[in-house]
Each structure stands twice: as structure tokens, then as C-alpha cells.
Simulated assay, not measured.
Amino acid sequence: MPYFSSATAALTRLEVARAARNKKFLFFSVIYPSALFLMIGGIQDGATKVPGTELTMPAFYMVAMASFGAMTAVLMGNSERIAKEREKGWVRQLRLTALPGRGYVVAKIASAAVVSLPSIVIVFIVAAAVKDVRLAPWQWAALTGTIWAGSLVFAALGVAIGYLASGDAVRPLTMIVYFGLAMLGGLWMPTTVYPQWLQNIAEWLPTHAYAALGQAIELGGAPHLKDLAVLGLYLVLFSGGAAWLYRKDTLKA
């Protein structure tokens, strides 16, 4: 039976509707990244370049905050919801329905991806309107698709954390991972200002590779193979971990 069956599609629609009604979640995943861009990137001089690159500071923070917003939607939303629904027995009840075995996980990732798209687009609109960031049409389209697709890496991580942690422990664990990856990976400031030893660590983090994809497109080029390979490796790692934890949780049910 295919994972994205009619039952999975129905659950995906339900998850999207639930997210749309959650004002707190919508604020942090959709509005918050744009507000951060205005607070950090909005005060930057449009002519100032990021050290060691040809990117202007507003352009750098546009991609950084769009990536941060997409990561917020898929990581924070998945981890907490899955952990709490496991604790309440909702996941166990769904296994008694026509929903395919992994349809629940697929629905969570798909619904998170739907919610993450507005956060990306709104950051772009704000950057263009407020800081006059100008790109070619193909660059806007490529940026949107790349950042959106790249967020699946963090959606898989959110699923893994949701199956790893209990309802009480999931929020602090997610926050540590979330802010740690964001800060060390260069979503809040360019990694070129870090000490060299920290730059060496940052370049192997998924958030650094994630932001680098968009930065390469902004400069008019294609994403670097190293960044694609790093993200691919983390996708396999997080997806494999989520699948293993899912099977382990299924055996307990």
C-alpha cells in the first residue's frame, strides 16, 4: 500500500488545518522570521558586504531568515506534536485505522512543508519591499524551491526527535537543537566572523549547508556539490533515525 494513500492525504489536510488555527505556531513559523529580518537585516547598510563574500548584508539575512523560518515550521512543529500525540495515545489509535503504517510520519512531513512555504515567501516580500533586494525571476524561483526542498532535512529531524523524546522533554531538547544549529550554522550571523576553529565545525552542519544553497543562487551560481552532499548525508541520517525510532515505537504499541 503506498504511503501517501487517501487516508494519508486526509490526515495531511487535517494537520494543515490544525496548524492554520494555531496562532502561536503561525506567529513563530511565519511572522517571526520576517520580524527577525527587519530587526537584524533591516538595519544593515545595503552596500555593506558580508566579509569574505560578494553578498550584501540584507541579501545574506534574507536567505538566512527564510531558511530559519522554514526550519522553525518543520522542526518545532513536528517534534512537539509527535511526542505529545504519542503520549496521549493518538498515534496508537491511528494505527487501528486505514492509515498506512508510516502514513502518519509522511502526513507530518507533508503538512509541515505546506506551512513552511509562507514563511519563505513573506521574508522575500519584506526583503524586496523594505531593503530593495533585487534578483532575477529565476533566482527568486530557485531560492523558493531550494529552501523549501531543503527544509525536508529538518522535517526528518523533527520526526526523529518526536519519537525520541517524551512529551515533557521534547521542548527543551528541540530548543537546544534548534537554536544550536541556527547559531552555529550561521543563520543569525555570518560564520566568517567566527574564530577559525568554529568555522571549521560550522561548515559541516546542516544549517550552514542549507543557507549556503540559497547564497550560491543569490550570487548567480549553482549550489556547491559539497553543500548538497552534506545535506543529503544529514537527510539519510535523520530519515534513517526517524524510521528506526518509528519501528521501535511501533513494537511498543
Rank of each mutant, 00 (worst) to 15 (best):
P2T: 11
Y3T: 12
S5M: 12
S6L: 13
A7D: 07
A9D: 11
A10I: 05
L11Q: 10
L11R: 10
T12P: 07
A20Y: 05
N22F: 02
N22Q: 03
L26V: 03
F27P: 12
F27S: 13
V30W: 06
Y32I: 06
S34K: 05
A35Y: 11
A35P: 13
G41W: 06
I43Y: 04
D45I: 11
K49D: 10
V50I: 12
L55G: 14
T56N: 10
A59C: 09
F60R: 11
F60Y: 15
A66W: 06
S67K: 08
S67G: 15
F68K: 07
G69Q: 01
L75S: 02
M76T: 13
S79P: 12
R81I: 11
R81L: 12
I82W: 00
R86L: 14
R86S: 03
R86P: 10
G89P: 14
W90T: 15
R92N: 13
R92I: 13
L96I: 04
T97A: 12
L99N: 04
G103A: 04
Y104S: 07
A110M: 08
V115K: 01
V115D: 06
P118A: 01
V121F: 13
V121N: 02
V123R: 08
F124D: 05
A127S: 15
K131S: 14
D132W: 12
D132N: 15
V133C: 13
R134P: 13
A136K: 15
W138Y: 14
T144R: 03
I147V: 15
I147W: 03
W148P: 12
A149N: 05
L152E: 02
V153E: 12
A155M: 13
G158P: 03
Y163N: 12
G167C: 08
D168L: 11
A169P: 12
A169Y: 09
V170Q: 10
P172K: 09
P172V: 05
G180Q: 07
L184D: 00
G186C: 05
W188N: 05
M189S: 10
P190E: 00
T192L: 07
Y194R: 01
W197C: 10
W197Y: 01
Q199W: 05
A202W: 01
L205D: 00
Y210S: 02
A211V: 15
A211T: 13
A212T: 03
L213D: 01
Q215G: 08
A216G: 02
I217Y: 01
E218T: 07
L219R: 09
G220Q: 03
G220A: 06
G221D: 08
G221Q: 07
A222F: 05
L225H: 08
G232Y: 02
V236E: 02
V236T: 11
F238C: 03
S239K: 04
G241I: 02
W244G: 14
R247F: 00
L251W: 00
